[in-house]
Simulated assay, not measured.
Amino acid sequence: MAYLLQQLANAVPLAALYAALAFGYSIAFGVTRRADITYGALFAFSGQMLLLFTDVGYNRLILILPAALAFGAAISFLYAMGVGLFVGRSIIQPLVAKSPNTVIVAALGVTIVLMESAWLAANMRVLWLPPFLNASVVFWQDGGFQVTLTEIQLINIGFMMVIVVAGGAILRFTSWGRIWRAVTDDALAAELCGTSASRVFLMAYGSSALVATLCGILSTSYYGTMDFGAGLMFGLKVLLIAAVGGYSDPLKSAGGAAGLGVVETIWSAYGPLVWRDLVVFSLLVFLLILSRRERAIP
């Protein structure tokens, strides 16, 4: 029983990460209507920039670790957000307007550029953060077995829950949320009613990039490192999760993603680890087939 409770506790950080990533991705997909692996690349890129500039701050600027982490997080945020806004405005938006299917190819090109740029900037080194905020918080105890999470896990859970809850409130209760829904339903009709679909596109893509950047920084702080393989794996899972949820409701996508995080963690605890990703992707494809809608995306 205690072991199961510990595994459920372990599932919460991963569920929170998946939920936040799926929420952010759904916002961008609402206006692009095309699969975009750039989202996973931005997630990984922000983490790698955090590693790189924390290393610069600690080893070159001789900052103490908290200051080096803050320096790395600030520069990572600026870099990743700058890249996200540039890609959204200069690459994705023109392609969506003229040739939507080329978005997938362009996203692959952007991903390769970001991957190689980060790899060269790090001088082809794998960087790691030193452990911090690793003190255990005990939730339950059964004899000598304790159900715990670390401080950094709890901080990450809190921030990611804030992202989802605050984002959901903005979409539901603000005028921007209503305008976003109008553009995602019918951009031309929204334009005829006086809404700038172009501006909404950029705001939605920027919001999505913001979520990917924050999640990349937070998860790298917890895991200690980040690579593009992990970023693209997260991005692909989120893409399929959001597809099952129908993309139209970011909160629904976030809820489905959180459920997947629990399933993945339970499988890792009780099933063969080598089959975990196969099982997860098979489950997502199966759910996607069951939830398939007979509606063409223009």
Rank of each mutant, 00 (worst) to 15 (best):
L4G: 03
L5D: 08
Q6H: 09
L8Q: 04
A9D: 02
N10S: 10
N10G: 08
V12K: 00
P13K: 00
L14K: 00
A15H: 11
L17I: 14
L17D: 00
S26R: 01
A28V: 13
T32F: 09
R34V: 15
R34E: 15
T38G: 07
T38E: 07
G40N: 09
A41I: 10
F43M: 03
A44S: 05
A44V: 12
G47D: 08
G47F: 01
M49Q: 08
F53M: 04
T54C: 05
D55V: 07
Y58E: 11
N59F: 15
I62P: 05
I64L: 03
P66H: 10
A67N: 11
A67H: 04
A70I: 01
A73H: 05
S76A: 15
S76L: 10
L78H: 02
L78D: 00
M81S: 03
V83H: 03
R89D: 10
S90M: 15
I92N: 08
I92D: 08
P94M: 07
V96K: 07
A97R: 15
K98P: 06
S99P: 00
N101D: 12
G109A: 15
I112T: 14
V113C: 07
A118G: 06
A122D: 12
W128M: 09
N134D: 06
S136D: 15
S136V: 12
S136C: 00
V138N: 06
F139T: 09
W140R: 03
Q141D: 03
D142F: 09
G143M: 08
Q146V: 10
Q146D: 12
T150C: 01
T150D: 07
T150P: 06
L154Q: 02
I163Q: 00
V164E: 01
V165Q: 02
A166G: 05
G168S: 14
A169V: 13
L171I: 10
L171H: 04
R172D: 07
F173W: 15
T174R: 04
W176E: 00
I179L: 14
I179M: 07
T184A: 12
D185V: 13
L188R: 14
G194Y: 12
S198A: 09
V200F: 08
F201C: 04
L202Y: 13
L202M: 09
M203E: 13
A204C: 09
Y205R: 05
V211L: 03
I217V: 15
S221Y: 11
Y223C: 02
F228N: 08
L232I: 15
M233G: 12
M233P: 06
V238T: 14
L239T: 07
L239W: 09
L239V: 07
I241G: 02
A242Q: 03
A242E: 02
V244C: 08
S253Y: 05
A254K: 05
G255M: 11
G255K: 03
G256E: 02
A257H: 05
V263A: 14
T265D: 00
I266N: 02
I266Q: 04
S268I: 06
P272Y: 04
V274G: 08
D277W: 14
D277F: 07
V279P: 06
L284F: 11
L290N: 04
S291G: 01
S291D: 10
S291P: 05
R293M: 07
R293C: 03
R293E: 13
E294M: 12
E294S: 13
